[in-house]
Amino acid sequence: MNGRGFDRAREDVAAPGTVDGEAPARPIRLQVNNLDFFYGRHQALKDVNVGFPAAGISAIIGPSGCGKSTLLRAMNRIYALYPGQRASGEILLDGENVLAPSYDVGRLRAQIGMVFQKATPFHLSIFENIAFPLRHYERLSRAQQSERVEKALRQAALWDEVKDQLGRSALALSGGQQQRLCIARTLAVRPEVVLMDEPTSALDPISTARIEELLAQLSLDFKVIIVTHNLQQAARVASHVVFMFEGAMVEEGSHEQIFLSPKQQKTSDYVTGRFG
């Protein structure tokens, strides 16, 4: 853990496009401008504009189908796997538009990692699950690999449980352990931003609690953006909250603003449980 997330955050304080209105001095790491997103003819995101602060955990909340996962999936261009899906607008990472075709998608995904709703361990050993993607980026000796694998597993709070069985198949782990392995795998390639798409919705309460503790730890080193349909979870973990509804960004702001004094009626209705 070298805290480079923080270092970098302090470097580019004067990022453009901060939140309008009062006192938003927080530096912006990821800025979304005029983002439209289409699944074929269906428009899932409508002119979304939002900035994500460089530090801490941002949560994207909203009812099912509001486009929160779509927004996340636009950030690392994972949607490009599907021919019918396209995005227009800009997503600026440190000032550079990652949606531009000239922005190398491999480089983008190394910078912006992603953890999915369902744990997705590869059919490899626990060690190889982390070492295989690592070797794609760096030439490492066996010893260096072991070191990095251990570090990633420690960061994901999984090391103590698996340190004696690194050669075992990752598929033999429990659901919560598999999800932490996927987090470790994402962290090992040292991204700047970690996207999490409802990472605990398939887990039991105890595993969920472990991952939430872990999130707080991770946010010291990485920018974390989490999509969750669980309001309590957003309230527990996030310092910055984005509320989306029907493909549009309705309101964003600090944890306190969204949950205690929302400006929009829709936000207020949602966070007080009147719909969704």
Binding site: L81, G113, T120, H136, C182, T186
Partner: peptide
Amino acid sequence: PQTLREAGLALGL
């Protein structure tokens, strides 16, 4: 599962 494919690609591979 498509999620496995996405997980691999999301690592930038």
